[in-house]
Design a protein around this nucleic acid. Structure first.
Length: 211
DNA sequence: GATGCGATTCACT
DNA sequence: GTGAATCGCATCG
């Protein structure tokens, strides 16, 4: 399933569960993702230009983790998924903590509410305790420290299997900054109406300094 | 060898 | 709702 184009895999990750056993078990339900393509097709992707030592995981086996450090302080977690021979990954942008809430709260003391525990890529990684040490690990390994469950446990009695809920609705949108043929491709996917989905951000990151 | 930008979050008003 | 802080990576010469 993961051996397909990221834009095809991304919506399938919505509703999937991520479980971390790095400390006390924490499980989150994925509510927002963003696909990143390979060479030449996605200017926003780390793999747009070439393979480097940093993004090598995006060229590796599908189902593995790609963890990167950004803005000098934040870790972000991606799931590697791509067609054979093409780099690609899906960034996990937001999720809802469904198990281990107290542990997540301990890792995110600044979160004002449980809703904010994993709302945002870096927050989600922090809530799970994910760091760069996990770059390249197999998320499908049943014995791994962090696992991706496409078929959710469903301990709450609901049908939480992977994939968008027909009634909940699937939100999609093109990512700003992508031009050409890629502009028509929806790179972002989220569960419509879910409170943990981060609000749309302004396209332009603010300038720095008094200038 | 040096410079610019980035898939963000937090604190304050 | 808006502005500021932060480190590493990739690119250019």
């Amino acid at each position: 399933m993961l051996a397909a184009h990221p834009t095809r895999t991304a919506p399938l990750l919505l509703g999937a569960h991520l479980t971390s056993d790095l400390g006390p078990t924490v499980t989150i339900r994925i509510t927002e993702v963003e696909a990143y393509g390979g060479l030449g097709e996605d200017p926003g992707s780390h793999a747009h230009r070439r393979r480097t030592d940093r993004n090598r995981a995006m060229f590796g086996p599908v189902g593995h983790a790609y963890v990167y450090f950004t803005y000098g302080m934040h870790w972000c977690l991606n799931v590697v998924c791509h067609e054979p021979g093409v780099a690609g990954a899906v960034l996990i942008r937001a999720g809802a903590v469904v198990h281990g809430t107290s542990t997540a709260q301990g890792r995110r003391p600044s979160a004002r509410s449980d809703r904010d525990l994993a709302r945002g890529p870096a927050r989600l990684a922090a809530a799970l305790g994910v760091t760069g040490e996990l770059d390249g690990i197999d998320l499908l390994d049943p014995d791994g420290p962090v696992r991706l469950s496409l078929a959710a446990p469903g301990h709450d009695g609901r049908d939480t299997r992977a994939g968008p809920r027909p009634d909940g609705g699937l939100g999609t949108g093109p990512r700003t900054g992508v031009s050409g043929a890629g502009a028509a491709t929806p790179w972002r996917f989220w569960v419509a109406g879910d409170p943990t989905v981060s609000p749309h951000r302004r396209a332009a990151p603010g300038r720095r300094g008094p200038g």
